[in-house]
Nucleic acid binder design. Structure first.
Lengths: 111, 111
DNA sequence: TAAGCATATAAATACATATTAATATGATTG
DNA sequence: CAATCATATTAATATGTATTTATATGCTTA
């Protein structure tokens, strides 16, 4: 049934610690690009590699990070490994981050 | 009028890059504690130091990081330097991160 | 101006992480 | 089983960063 072992090392105790852990996963531009790319639906690693023009090991590395923080789900089908976003709120948060960052910059730059 | 120079090095071009930059600022538990502590209102550095039981240089370091990402505003009054949260959406995003992280963990742990 | 408090910075250390190049694993098909 | 394709891992490197200790800066007041 195409199960994939997913060693998540997300901290369990403090909720602030887990929030920080998730934020760290969102703190790399390439990971954000991968998440946005997965927004269009489940994709294989090679699909992501092509679409984003990143090297395959780099994409694998970032996907591993996204797995660690539970932001993506994995499913193996044949020789392909498909990734998908684990929760829709992830992209809402990403959108909120983008808006916020844009406004903070605008407020700073305006004068 | 108590202006404080605030060297923000937030990237200006790509909106994804700025989102990642803000996320990085949210990716440290001590910085999140500082933000939550500032939620109760404007506070001096020494106030934060006392409330969180962190060393003064460490708090100063993290406040500098929060300034760089424009998440806090600074105001000097006499010998004190007061910090406050720059935008209310910051705490909304933080709350959303906490909820998300908790649910992701719960979904993973439930079985 | 000297002393004292509040804050920032510097230096040192330890550790994490992004990226690349090379190689290994794992599944499929001839 | 050999070859091939998809993905993961390893090693190496460079860079970033959290923390501590020590010191500097800056404001205020005696």
């Amino acid at each position: 049934m195409a199960q994939v072992k997913s060693e998540s090392i997300m901290p369990r105790e403090d909720s602030l610690q887990t929030a920080a852990f998730v934020a760290k996963s969102l703190s790399d531009e390439n990971r954000l690009r991968i998440l946005l790319c997965l927004n269009q639906g489940k994709k294989s690693v090679s699909g992501i590699v092509e679409e984003l023009s990143l090297s395959q090991p780099l994409v694998s590395h970032h996907l591993k990070e996204l797995r660690r923080s539970l932001l993506v789900r994995v499913e193996r089908r044949g020789p392909f490994v498909y990734y998908e976003i684990a929760d829709d709120r992830i992209l809402q948060i990403l959108a909120a981050l983008k808006d916020l960052a844009a406004d903070l910059l605008a407020a700073r730059t305006t004068f």
